[in-house]
């Protein structure tokens, strides 16, 4: 009797105990730093040399400054454009690749394995490769440069707008092959008989795509678009080590601005305010995600 009771008590506590290690770790390394960041954003704290300076509370001054900072607004705009380009080009190329590879042909398995490679390749190694390929004096890109109708002699990573195009291109290289694999696995769920019926009814490839294929892979494509957005929004080292945010501040996305403001300009408080703005974007994206997946799960049922 006693034994049954004690086991019931432990049963109700057990799920909390199981989740506790993660909750504790998240509190220590995610939530507490966020609270810290919000607090700092309300002060005038700096990093580095001026440590003796007294830190004082300044209310919303940093946020007021933020809304009037052309660097911040520019960075926000860049981040959005960068993310949207990632969505359009990476998911778009992934979709086209998946549709092509979906038919049976010789070497398909090898092609699929190959498509995982760039995603698994670490950022720093990719950075080294692309800095070398795009090198303005000795890079292999030189072969192409001479045939281009525009002047890239300022360097692919050091002049505008090529630096921006390059960082979009590098992240596209990294992501689209993997997205194509994800879409490919969703394509396996397209009902074969419906496709055949559509063919018999005389539907062309475009019509078949619109009426049969697209409806069944739409949740996956939507989700991937959101993930591509997040990937771009989070992307730090690949941009930081290729362009550093330059030339001028033409590739300085939000995460780079947070880092540069703190470690280059030592303005910890202002950097924190930018960080808080980024967190608001994150919450918005995570909520959108829940909305999307909730709906697609309901749709599946």
């Amino acid at each position: 009797m006693k034994k049954v009771k004690s086991s019931r008590v432990s049963r109700s506590r057990l799920p909390y105990l199981l989740a506790l290690p993660i909750i504790a770790l998240s509190f220590f390394l995610v939530l507490y730093p966020i609270i810290q960041g919000i607090y700092i954003s309300l002060t005038d704290k700096t990093l580095g040399a001026a440590t003796g300076k007294k830190v004082s509370f300044v209310g919303l001054r940093n946020y007021n400054e933020l809304l009037h900072s052309s660097a911040f607004l520019n960075s926000l705009r860049l981040t959005v454009i960068y993310a949207i380009m990632n969505v359009i080009f990476s998911v778009g190329a992934g979709l086209i690749t998946a549709l092509t590879v979906n038919k049976k042909f010789r070497g398909r398995g090898g092609v699929r394995a190959l498509l995982t490679a760039p995603w698994a390749f670490p950022d720093i190694a990719s950075v080294i490769i692309f800095i070398w390929i795009l090198n303005s004096a000795f890079g292999v890109i030189g072969i192409i440069n001479v045939h281009l109708p525009f002047d890239t002699s300022g360097g692919w990573l050091t002049s505008s707008p090529y630096a921006f195009i390059s960082v979009v291109g590098i992240s596209m290289w990294k992501t689209f092959p993997f997205y194509s694999i994800v879409i490919l696995s969703a394509l396996q769920g397209v009902p074969e008989d419906l496709l055949e019926a559509a063919t018999v009814d005389g539907a062309g490839p475009i019509q078949r795509f619109r009426t049969v294929i697209l409806p069944s892979i739409r949740p996956t494509v939507l989700l991937l678009s959101l993930l591509a957005f997040i990937f771009a929004f989070r992307q730090f080292s690949m941009i930081y080590l290729t362009t550093g945010g330059g030339p001028e501040r033409d590739t300085e996305t939000l995460v780079l601005m947070v880092y540069n403001t703190a470690f280059k300009y030592f303005d910890y408080a202002f950097s924190s305010a930018i960080g808080v703005a980024g967190l608001i974007v994150t919450v918005a994206v995570a909520s959108t995600y829940l909305l999307l997946t909730g709906r697609s799960e309901k749709g599946a049922r």
């Binding site: 995610v30 990093l47 989070r234 995460v255 947070v258 880092y259 950097s271 960080g275 980024g278 967190l279």
Partner: peptide, 9 residues
């Protein structure tokens, strides 16, 4: 989903 860079400092 959160970029680590936002809270690295």
């Amino acid at each position: 989903m959160m970029p680590e860079a936002l809270i690295v400092i």
